[in-house]
Design a binder for these strands. Sequence first.
DNA 1: GAGTTTGAAACT
DNA 2: CAGTTTCAAACTC
Length: 807
Amino acid sequence: MDVVSPELNSLLPDEIMDTEAIEDIPHSQPGGGTTVQSASDDAPLPMETDTPMASENMSLCSIATSTGHTQALTTSTTSNSTFIISSGSPLPMSISSSSPSLLTFKPAMATSIATTKTTDSLTGTTFSTSGLQKLTAPFTISAASHQIILNKVASEAAKSAGGPPQIIKQEGQKLLVTAIGKSGQPIVLQLPHTGSKPGLSQTSGDLKSQAPQFKVVTIGGRTELKPILGSPGNQLTTLQAQQLKTMQIAKKTPVSSAAPIKFIITKTVNSKGLSPQTSVTPVIAGRVLTQSSLGMPSRTITLSEPHNTTTLQSITGKKIAISPLKSPSKVTVVSVASPTSNASHKSVTLPVNVALGQQILTVQQSTPGSPIKVTTSQTTQGLKPGQTVTVGGVGGSQFKTIIPLATQPNVQQIQVPGSRFHYVRLVTATTASSSGQPSGPSTSSLQTAKPMMVSTGAVRMSVPIVPAQSIKQMAPKSLTSAAVVTTTQTQQRLIMPATPLPQIQPNFTNLPPGTVLAPAPGGGNMGYAVVPAQYVTQLQQSPFVTLASSSAFTTNTGIQTQARLPLNGLSAAETTSRPRKPCNCTKSQCLKLYCDCFANGEFCSNCNCNNCFNNLEHETERLKAIKTCLDRNPEAFKPKIGKGKEGESDRQHSKGCNCKRSGCLKNYCECYEAKIMCSSICKCVGCKNFEESPERKTLMHLADAADMRVQQQTAAKTKLSSQISDLLMRTTPVMSSGSGRLPFTFVTKEVLEATCECLLEQAKKAEQTHQPQVEAERMILEEFGHCLMRIISSAGKAKADCASINC
DNA sequence: GAGTTTGAAACT
DNA sequence: CAGTTTCAAACTC
């Protein structure tokens, strides 16, 4: 085990999120026999999220009942870090570490949660799995380090199931944990070799060719991570492991028969946030992931975070608690599978996406039959079928997230901008266990689609939560993967695969900013719906949006809210504050880069376009168009204006302009439009858009003057407006008293006629004296002013009289 | 608001 | 890759 240093941590996002790698890895792996995999496909792997907390508690428990073995993984951190893993009896596992640090793998028949306090670092070299396998390797968990990587990597030794002891190696600063075997089978925690050979650590369960890896990253300064690995229980799946494989989305993952899962994510202060519904084991000032014990119908996972009140929203059967986290905080999502694997096989995919200030929380599930409860604290965002919500970070941080979908339930990732990531680990217990609420349809607080909002620093995204009923209806499409991809700088992309669509799968890394791949409306073979990130927000505004069915998206085209993501180097504030210009496309169907909406990865809304296909109703066409654009230019959706090293002064057009006639001093020029100067890469002719250009300076001055004028006018209007309101406010009491009237109320028909006569008289007078027109107008206006003054004066006197009389 | 100009995008 | 066409925004009147 290794702990990843902060520096490495900062590098992880790209590393983890590399979608290409994701796709490639599965294929590159040798036969399944050599691949380390989790126990069973059905068993979801627990995911965990790290957040930098001064003190945190985390616990993950996964339970597999079928074998009567309970697996519990608990990680608790109290001001320090603790790593505890308990596994079913067949697999006693222990990691000994020198005090004060403690790392423990401990078998438990039922759910066991162990909490240990550790000092800043944990180190150990031995990992034993009840003789089945023994892993010995130096490992370190240090509070200072912020990452823990669980990786499914095969080691040579691991290639033979139940073979020679496996080793947990400390490599660099990464911690890899591999394969979870079925009950009674060895679990391997392994640090990846530099080699890419997939290892295998598990004998039971289907071995998939994929060698999933998942990384758990702890964010934040001092958090320690406590990666947990599922137990050898029957139903721990390779799948989960694969999912956890951070960015690798298994294209062909076995459909997990995961039992109902409850997700509870809570941000708690001293466990205050724990939802009553869940059997949560509060951990000391940290996050608690709790799992129920064997035989219990519980599937609750609670993530608690200090200083939060939790509002629970429940979907029958499953609970999802989402805790908004403050940037350095952690988000944890845990899912526990219910024992009802045999129950009705309505698989439910319940994605919960939460965008937190700088955190992303995603919850996903596919569960058979049982209701789902979602608990959310603070703002939440919606749920989508198969979906993922990613929240963008701010400040140039990039993060990419790929989240496995239905077929890979239980794995979720949370990413935080910057080097801080949050991974959500969903723990699935194949057996029912926990004291969570029964999976009755009734108890859900999410009876209606309720948008959950999570405040995000610069970016806010939300997704409506699907009512429990709808969720049940959600087609358990065997989604192979879900991905959230954030590409450039502050841009974010969400990818929500619904069903496999190999032929059209876009290059995730190049999708338009803020793109979400969601189940395509209309189903069909289309597996992806590319949804602009802001559309997620749009969706949430419609209370009737149902994530359960993809068709729901099609009904929400009118939603307008734009949660724009920063583009072209502009700050989030800039982009969000400025309303998007509606396009006027007539021939491109808004599916070409001519269309600004499309080019920005947005759906058209409130546009003036004709025959627009840039909407969910035409997701198929839209997706194809995106693919076409990406084929033509992989950078097509990336910002043209790169952000300079420091400040805007260094911003530069990625390709340069080609202006011929505008001198690069008109908005035709992309450089000028972006308010940057042309650079050497520009191919413009007669360029005047350079630093010393007098024309440019003149234009700049004019522009500044114009801006100033506008500002002054705006200020004047505001002031006048406030004065008028103030005047009205002052006069209101008079009116309300019934005894007074506003001056204009004195403008009766008679007064009006008299005024007009005065004005006409003045006009005649001017005419008779042969005054020029200008002078005549002046005289008339003057007279009009006098008239007004007399009216106002009369009104004032009348009010004064009334007041005196009343007194 | 209609028409023109412009340059990026798309096409060949 | 270069030349041409298409397109929609920017601009002018």
